[in-house]
């Protein structure tokens, strides 16, 4: 076993990638969900806006993927 010294930037990037599924959930899946709903004229439940629904859906899915290490 050997040790590799990591720079502050590398540590920051590693931390970022560790939570990337969550970031992907709110950064991409959320607006994608909202725009797909809008293009099919689908309304979000409980009077929510499409983007709020997308954030809840994408954020939750991304959080689960971050914790489980699997999207499905």
């Amino acid at each position: 076993m050997v040790s590799i010294t990591l720079t502050a930037m590398e540590i920051a990037v590693r931390k970022l990638f560790a939570i990337m599924p969550f970031l992907f959930g709110i950064g991409f899946i959320a607006p994608l969900t909202a725009q797909i709903m809008a293009s099919f004229s689908l309304a979000a439940p409980l009077g929510m806006s499409n983007i709020v629904f997308g954030l809840i859906f994408g954020g939750t899915w991304g959080l689960i993927a971050t914790m489980r290490g699997r999207w499905l």
Binding site: G27, P31, L32, Q35, I36, S39
Partner: peptide, 9 residues
């Protein structure tokens, strides 16, 4: 995605 082109992306 956040500028309205999520489906294109």
């Amino acid at each position: 995605a956040w500028t309205g082109f999520a489906i294109e992306a």
